[in-house]
């Protein structure tokens, strides 16, 4: 599934996890903590400043069975989107 940056920007997440200011493995820990609040098939956004998250969150999604949708770069941080396994 490919989603354009503009489509990502318009997505309304069921839960937003702010992992900005944390470093490895902070962002995936935050994702793990946040995912129970998301309904099955729901959307989660992870905000992060650690650039490794661009690789780590997709790897986490793959392992956990979620669908990594993509990311948007904002000034000074990243917004990453995933769809929770149905």
């Amino acid at each position: 599934m490919t989603i354009s940056i503009d489509e990502l920007r318009d997505l309304k997440a069921d839960a937003v996890v702010d992992a900005r200011g944390t470093s490895c493995p902070g962002p995936i820990l935050a994702a793990k903590k946040g995912i129970p609040a998301v309904p099955a098939g729901g959307l989660m956004e992870v905000m992060a400043t650690d650039s490794g998250t661009l690789k780590d969150l997709p790897a986490w999604c793959k392992k956990m069975g979620h669908d990594f949708l993509g990311y948007v770069e904002e000034p000074g941080y990243l917004r990453l989107f995933l769809r929770k396994a149905a």
Partner: peptide
Amino acid sequence: FVIANGAAAMG
């Protein structure tokens, strides 16, 4: 501990 915590976060 980074590896351990990362692995635990991955289930």
